[in-house]
Computed example of a mutant assay.
Amino acid sequence: MAPEQMAEPPEAGPVPPPARPLDAIDQDILQMLQADGRASIRSVAERVHVSRANAYARINRLIEDGVIRGFGARVDHERAGQGTSAYITLKIVQNSWRTVREQLRVLPGASHIALVGGDFDVLLLVHTPDNRALRELVLTRLQAIPEVLSTRTLLVFEEEDLEPEG
């Protein structure tokens, strides 16, 4: 195998348990928590028709299994002072995904990173205060990463998060 075709070694870290199948109650709990991550155990239990202890155990199992990765707030980026959003596509050096990902994770305003197939390798969603900050991010920060071969910026004119029905 040529060096450029060799895969990177697997990442170190804890190995998650094997995924367990989710039943209808688990699916209902997930839907409810996606709509309202602050829902009480009592309200979850009532909605899915199980005891509070059962709801608590199920939520803990979903967390332990890595199905639920965390809880957070859905932010209106414009109202939070991040009025410019863009998807940035990147072409990167072959087999440099892990290295590039670590550098993208710390970029100010980076919101979502995906390794994809197609005409480019990485799709990055960023939120910045304005076009000047976006330009600085792309021209100074992204294009300075040695493994980034090229970028293309797609400015977002309007966006809407699709929220689960609650």
Rank of each mutant, 00 (worst) to 15 (best):
R47K: 15
R47E: 15
V48K: 00
H49S: 15
V50Y: 03
S51I: 13
S51T: 15
A53Y: 02
A53C: 02
A57F: 11
R58W: 07
I59W: 03
N60D: 15
N60E: 15
N60H: 12
L62P: 14
D65W: 05
D65R: 06
G66Q: 04
V67I: 15
I68P: 00
R69L: 15
F71N: 13
G72I: 08
V75N: 05
V75F: 09
V75Y: 08
D76I: 12
E78N: 07
E78H: 07
A80C: 10
G81N: 06
G81W: 04
G81H: 05
Q82E: 12
G83N: 03
T84W: 00
T84N: 00
I88F: 04
K91R: 12
I92M: 13
V93S: 14
Q94H: 11
Q94P: 06
Q94A: 11
N95F: 07
R98E: 06
T99R: 15
R101N: 14
R101A: 14
E102N: 06
Q103M: 11
Q103W: 08
Q103E: 14
R105A: 06
V106W: 04
L107S: 08
H112M: 07
A114I: 01
L115H: 13
L115M: 09
G117L: 09
G118I: 12
G118Y: 14
D119M: 09
L123W: 06
H127N: 14
T128V: 07
P129C: 09
P129H: 05
L134D: 00
R135F: 03
L137E: 05
V138C: 13
Q143P: 01
Q143S: 04
Q143K: 13
Q143D: 08
I145K: 06
I145H: 04
I145V: 05
V148T: 10
L155C: 00
E158A: 13
